[in-house]
Amino acid sequence: MHEVSIAQSLLEIAINNCKNNGFSRIGNIKVLIGKASGVMPDALFFAFDGLKADTIASEATLEIEEVPVSGFCNLCNKDFTTDEKFILACPHCDGLSYTLNSGRELNITEMEVF
């Protein structure tokens, strides 16, 4: 998996945001992770903790909120939400033509700075 490159980008974005706003330390960082993003929260925590040492985020923590996969089926015209990691077919009608609305997020939404 590629959690290390994700953690690296996350750290860079957080550090840039912190510095650009005139702060010098980072606390808690809130992250949205779609269940279909292919990113495993545990692996991300691990990678993040390994990379943050010796940066202004050395005491930062990650708070991960997982976003379920949801979408709209073009065949039965219904919205759906599922707990599955990947959606193969519409949970209502098994149709294979759908549009995903959520589940692939990999976003930073909020961070604490000092």
Binding site: S9, I13, F23, V31, L106, E112
Partner: peptide
């Protein structure tokens, strides 16, 4: 303080 950010982590890529 809390900073609201709306960054996609893969934006850099």
């Amino acid at each position: 303080m809390k900073l609201k950010v709306a960054s996609k982590i893969l934006d850099a890529n």
